[in-house]
C-alpha cells in the first residue's frame, strides 16, 4: 500500500536530511505506529505519502503509484484515497458536525443524496449518533477528534494517516479514539499513526516503526515504544531522560542506573 525505496528527503543542504535513505513497506490493512522524538522524520514521512512533499531521492509508492511521477493535476485523486487526521482537529467552527463531515464529500462533487445517506453511517461508525447538529465549540476534545476522523474517512480512503491524533486528549479519551481507529482498520483501511504516546503504542500491540534522526531505528511486527526513561543519578537525584537507541535490550551502565519504578514491559 505504501512503499518507500531508499527515500531521502533533504530540506537544506547544510543540515542533516529529514529522512535518510529509508526503505519500508506498509501493506494493505496494516495498522502501524510511527514513533520517534520530534524532528525524527515522522511528519516528513506523512508529507511524502500525501505528496505534500516530493522526495529528493528514492521513490515513494502509494497504492501502486510512484507519487513523484503523478502530474500535479492528478494529485487530488491520490489524496482522495488518503484520509488525514491531525492533533488539532481542524474542524470548521461555523459548520455543525454533519456539515463538517459532509464538506469532505461536497468538495469532491458527491451528490446530495449520497451525502445524506453516507454521513450518518460514518458518524455512527465513530460514535457520534445524535450529535449531528452540534457545533464544534459544543463538543469535547474527544468528540472533535471523532468528527475529524469521520471527515477523514467520509470518502472511503484506503489509507488513513493520523498525525498525533491523541496529542491533545487525556488518556481515557484517547482509548476511545484508538478504538475508533482500530475499528476503521478492521474494515480494511490501512492506518498509519504518528505518535509520541508510549502508553497507547504499548497497549495496542501493533506494528511499530521507530524513526530517529531520519533513519529507521527499528520496525517490529508487535512493538513497543519507550520515549523516556526515569533514571537515578549517582548523587541520588532522579530525572527523566530521553530514551536513545542504546537503551533497548541492555541495562544502563556507567554513571546512571534505571530507576526501580520502571514498568516490567520496558525492561528485559
Amino acid at each position: 500500500m505504501i512503499r518507500f525505496e531508499n527515500v531521502t528527503m533533504v530540506y537544506d543542504q547544510k543540515s542533516r536530511p529529514g529522512l535518510d535513505d529509508i526503505s519500508i513497506e506498509i501493506d494493505r490493512g496494516d495498522f502501524a505506529f510511527l514513533v520517534g522524538p520530534s524532528g525524527s522524520g515522522k511528519s516528513t514521512f506523512l508529507g511524502l505519502v500525501l505528496r505534500e512533499l516530493v522526495a529528493t531521492g528514492g521513490a515513494v509508492h502509494v497504492a501502486g503509484q510512484n507519487v513523484a511521477r503523478i502530474p500535479s493535476w492528478r494529485v487530488p485523486k491520490l489524496r482522495r484515497g488518503i484520509g488525514v487526521v491531525f492533533q488539532d482537529f481542524r474542524l470548521l467552527e461555523q459548520k455543525n458536525v454533519f456539515d463538517n463531515v459532509a464538506f469532505a464529500m461536497q468538495v469532491i462533487g458527491e451528490s446530495r443524496s449520497a451525502i445524506r445517506e453516507h454521513v450518518p453511517e460514518v458518524l455512527k461508525m465513530v460514535g457520534l449518533e445524535g450529535k449531528e447538529k452540534r457545533k464544534p465549540h459544543e463538543l469535547s476534545g474527544g468528540e472533535k477528534q471523532r468528527v475529524a476522523i469521520a471527515r477523514a474517512i467520509a470518502n472511503r480512503p484506503a489509507i488513513l494517516l493520523a498525525d498525533e491524533p491523541t496529542g491533545n486528549l487525556d488518556p481515557a479519551t484517547s482509548v476511545g479514539i484508538m478504538n475508533v481507529l482500530d475499528r476503521i482498520n478492521q474494515n480494511g483501511t490501512t492506518v498509519l499513526m504518528a505518535t509520541h504516546d508510549d502508553g497507547i503504542v504499548n497497549s495496542m500491540r501493533r506494528r511499530v516503526i521507530e524513526l530517529s534522526e531520519g533513519k529507521i531505528l527499528r520496525d517490529e511486527k508487535v512493538g513497543e515504544y519507550t520515549s523516556m526513561i526515569p533514571v537515578i543519578n549517582q548523587d541520588g537525584t532522579r530525572e527523566l531522560r530521553v530514551a536513545g537507541p542504546g537503551d533497548r535490550g541492555k541495562a544502563a551502565s556507567g554513571s546512571q542506573a534505571f530507576a526501580p519504578f520502571d514498568t516490567e514491559d520496558d525492561m528485559p
Binding site: 493535476w73 487530488p76 482522495r80 484520509g83 488525514v84 469532505a104 468538495v107 470518502n155
Partner: peptide, 8 residues
C-alpha cells in the same frame, strides 16, 4: 481541508 480530501 479541501486540498487534503482531494478537491481539485
Amino acid at each position: 481541508i479541501m486540498r487534503l480530501v482531494g478537491a481539485s
